[in-house]
C-alpha cells in the first residue's frame, strides 16, 4: 500500500483550518461560529497526528487527547453561556449582541 505523503495531511488540515476561520468571521449564529471553532481545533489535531506519525514521536498524539478534553470543556462552558444569553435576549445572533458597541 502506498503511503500518503505528509504534505497532503498538512495541506488538508490547513484547508480545514482556513475554512473554520472564514466561518468564524462570516457566520452570525453563535452556535455555528462555535462549530467553526471546533473545526479549527480538529484541523490542528490532524496536523498533530500527522506529524506524530511521520516523526515517530508519541507526544503529538498525547497532545491531541488533551486538545479534545479541553474542547469538550470549552463546549460545555460555551453552550451554557449561549443558553444564558438566549434566556436574556431570545436570540443568539451575534449582530443583535450590541448593548455595548462592538
Amino acid at each position: 500500500m502506498q503511503n500518503v505523503p505528509l504534505e497532503y495531511y498538512l495541506a488538508l488540515s490547513a484547508t480545514l483550518f482556513v475554512i473554520g476561520a472564514i466561518g468564524v468571521l462570516t457566520r452570525r449564529n453563535a452556535i455555528i461560529i462555535f462549530m467553526c471553532i471546533e473545526m479549527m481545533l480538529n484541523a490542528v489535531n490532524l496536523t498533530l497526528v500527522a506529524f506524530s506519525s511521520f516523526l515517530g514521536s508519541i507526544s503529538g498524539q498525547i497532545f491531541v487527547f488533551f486538545v479534545m478534553t479541553v474542547a469538550a470543556a470549552e463546549a460545555a462552558v460555551g453552550l451554557a453561556i449561549i443558553l444564558a444569553l438566549f434566556r436574556n435576549k431570545q436570540t443568539i445572533d451575534v449582530n443583535d449582541i450590541n448593548v455595548m458597541k462592538w
Binding site: 449561549i82 435576549k89 455595548m100
Partner: peptide
Amino acid sequence: TLSVEAGLKYFLLGAFATG
C-alpha cells in the same frame, strides 16, 4: 444582559484565538 454578552464575546473570540 451586559455580563452574559461580555461572556459570549470573550468565549467566541478567546476560543478563536486558542485555535
